[in-house]
């Protein structure tokens, strides 16, 4: 079996509440209408084992929804998603044993220390606490996390340090598939580089399959063997960075130009919008 993840004609739509029109009657303002958002629209893709696969798209393009579908946090409306041969709907528990995730927001119990958060996660994944402590310290050291901060509460750590703990939490459980949902967004250049280097190291040493969603063109180009350009819930194209460039203009084409050619969106404006968010 060569595929780690298979998505076949996956759809996920949401009904979202519309902003109430200030000029509408009070009843309509009280119960504003809903509009259908096509978060993931007929997506089919296949990720090979041991691959770093990038999902590149702007805010609201459907990247995180796709990751949540793979992570068993959402049910697809139609189509199917499988992780290492296991259906994410029918065999949720089996899928959960093989995956872990790092999200854009370092989600932790903020009053607890990094150590307490890591040990809690390790116990949920049935990792021996002693081994978990050794592994956690080794991973954090590799990521340049200060040793004396491991017992500090999460709320007193910088965003970069929190994200490094999030990476350690995911890797402690030795996942076969690692879902990285914008793991370097908001990090300083040094922390960003530390995390990127570590991602490459993990893939090389452990043969982990990694799905990486990102806004960062350079990051996608540096880390990913293949990249899917996603826009409006649809996959516009999938190829290597070189392949995408060649399709659009040639080797000297930038990824920003590739993105514009495939989606019709100006990346610099998307980046500005993202900063504003």
């Amino acid at each position: 079996m060569d595929s780690a993840i298979v998505c076949h004609q996956v759809r996920k739509y949401f009904w979202e509440e519309q902003e109430a029109d200030p000029g509408a009657c009070w009843l309509k303002r009280l119960r504003p209408g809903k509009r259908l958002t096509k978060a993931v629209d007929d997506v089919s893709l296949e990720v090979k084992r041991g691959e770093i696969f990038g999902l590149l798209g702007s805010n609201g393009s459907g990247k995180s929804t796709l990751i949540r579908l793979m992570a068993t946090l959402l049910l697809p409306d139609s189509g199917y998603v499988s992780v290492l041969g296991q259906d994410v709907v029918k065999n949720r528990l089996a899928v959960r044993r093989m995956i872990n995730r790092v999200s854009v927001d370092a989600a932790f119990f903020k009053k607890l220390s990094a150590y307490e958060n890591l040990m809690y996660a390790a116990r949920l994944y049935d990792v021996n606490p002693r081994q978990a402590k050794i592994d956690a310290e080794a991973i954090l050291k590799r990521l340049g996390f200060p040793r004396n901060k491991i017992y500090a509460s999460m709320e007193n750590l910088s965003r970069g340090m929190q994200q490094k703990v999030a990476v350690a939490r995911a890797l402690l459980t030795s996942p076969m598939v690692l879902l990285l949902d914008e793991p370097t967004t908001g990090l300083d250049p040094k922390s960003k580089r530390d995390v990127q280097d570590f991602v490459l190291e993990v893939q090389a040493e452990h043969d982990t399959t990694i799905i990486l969603t990102t806004h960062d063109m350079a990051e996608a180009e540096r880390l990913c063997q293949r990249i899917a350009i996603i826009d409006g819930g649809r996959v516009e194209d999938i190829d290597t960075a070189e392949g995408l460039k060649n399709k659009v203009g040639g080797p000297s084409t930038t990824m920003e130009e590739v993105f514009f050619a495939l989606t019709g969106r100006d990346w610099s404006k998307e980046a500005e919008d993202h900063e504003a968010d």
């Binding site: 949540r68 992570a71 068993t72 946090l73 528990l93 959960r96 044993r97 995956i99 995730r101 999200s103 927001d105 989600a107 932790f108 119990f109 903020k110 996660a121 949920l124 994944y125 049935d126």
Partner: peptide, 12 residues
């Protein structure tokens, strides 16, 4: 706390 997704995707 923001941990809900991590708890619900744990293999338990």
């Amino acid at each position: 706390e923001g941990t809900i997704e991590y708890t619900f995707m744990a293999p338990i």
